[in-house]
Design a protein around this nucleic acid. Structure first.
Lengths: 104, 104
DNA sequence: CCAGTTGTTTGAAATTTATCAAACAATGCA
DNA sequence: TGCATTGTTTGATAAATTTCAAACAACTGG
């Protein structure tokens, strides 16, 4: 069985989190996740191939920003809000606000 | 006279700000600026040559994070706290807190 | 078992980035 | 004027990143 690369909340690295958020596409993905909640990979209508999307989700996952749940053929992705807030209080909220997302 | 590349606060780009902050060295520079206030370039004892430091300051400056004031041979650098807070409320504070800086 | 769907991984190309040494510019001091 | 100091710019190199197509893997329905 494959182990998903996903750090514990204690091991989040601030620079890695900021880096993951610093790409416009990834920032948009996070914004949508915050807005609409858990979604399957394919439901983000972003202008990129599935390979590119998969890459971006990997970056977000390894930074600790998202969690992936497998269900059948789908991968449902969600924001790790609780863990992020615990480790970096106020950070996600400020970023989402700055990104133009509606409040929590 | 040379125009300093430094965006108006209205033109700050979130992704660029997050990117500038996503490098460990730059994050440390910002942390010290927040802690100690305005400083000359040479007074940051970071492990990098002056050319590399100059590069990092350029990235921070172009993202709108810092302001540079020339005085004699020195360049005094300061955080653009007011502008950042106006444009991205809570962001800098959350980042500094996450980076282990003392509160404002 | 086969075919279709969803997503990941691999390989490759183009771009960007970090880093340093060396040359350069600007300032101030003697 | 000559020289030391501070910082920027340039040129080069190594490493990382983004992106896509193609191959692959896993699951579902028939």
């Amino acid at each position: 069985m494959r182990v998903v690369q996903q750090p514990e909340r204690d091991q989040f690295d601030l620079a890695a989190v900021l880096y993951a958020l610093s790409d416009p596409t990834r920032l948009e993905l996070v914004r949508r996740l915050a807005q609409d909640g858990e979604r399957a990979c394919g439901t983000f209508d972003v202008c990129a191939t599935k390979a590119t999307l998969s890459h971006h989700f990997k970056v977000l996952r390894e930074a600790g920003l998202i969690h992936t749940r497998a269900e059948g053929v789908y991968r449902f992705i969600s924001l790790r809000r609780r863990d992020l807030d615990a480790r970096f209080p106020g950070l996600l909220k400020a970023v989402l606000k700055a990104a133009g997302a509606p409040g929590r």
